[in-house]
């Protein structure tokens, strides 16, 4: 861990996070729902001011969604991965678009692909999908194969064993 990472970790100690060192420049910090925004703000003031990504992991067996915020520092290239878990059946969280305006696009994306609502961000139009008519597609209980079968017809192939054998023997040109 770099020095500035140690410093930043000290600053967020009061929120009692669960810290996991992934490698020299990456640290994962898991915190409670109510602490997350304060942790992000503290880290931002400590130099981790670039929000690289907001994403989500579906822990279907635990009935939880894990929101993942990745912060990057331009001073030493360190990365903080700040996560929190929310209820899967009532996926609601607060927006961070006041801290990073760009977050509203990530939040729109998460709303589209995982069905997470962000309070305070009311622009929740679909970002990538057009005319989507099913449950959010990146949830683990969505079956893309079934959906693909019902919407996009496959090509039918007929197997010609004799021809294949002839090609295999080199009698005809495949």
């Amino acid at each position: 861990m770099t020095n500035s990472m140690n410093e930043a970790l000290k600053a967020i100690e009061i929120f009692n996070p669960m810290v996991e060192e992934i490698d020299e420049r990456q640290v994962k910090v898991s915190v409670g729902n109510d602490k997350l925004v304060s942790v992000l703000e503290t880290l931002k003031s400590k130099g981790y001011s670039h929000l690289s990504l907001i994403t989500c992991v579906d822990w279907i067996d635990d009935g939880q969604l894990e929101l993942v915020y990745i912060l990057f520092s331009w001073q030493d290239g360190g990365k903080f991965i700040v996560t929190t878990r929310i209820d899967r059946n009532n996926p609601k969280f607060v927006t961070v678009k006041e801290i990073w305006p760009v977050a509203r696009f990530y939040e729109r994306e998460l709303h589209e692909f995982f069905g997470v609502e962000f309070e305070g961000n009311d622009d929740m139009k679909p970002l990538f999908l057009e005319l989507w008519d099913e449950m959010p597609p990146l949830r683990k209980d969505f079956d893309p194969r079934e959906y693909s079968k019902s919407k996009f017809p496959d090509r039918k192939y007929e197997k010609d064993v004799i021809k294949e054998a002839k090609i295999f023997r080199g009698e005809i040109d495949g």
Partner: peptide, 16 residues
């Protein structure tokens, strides 16, 4: 474009 390739079971790509 022929049969969906590696995206044959994707929720958003067409198969032929």
């Amino acid at each position: 474009t022929i049969n969906g390739g590696i995206y044959y079971d994707s929720y958003s790509t067409i198969n032929r």
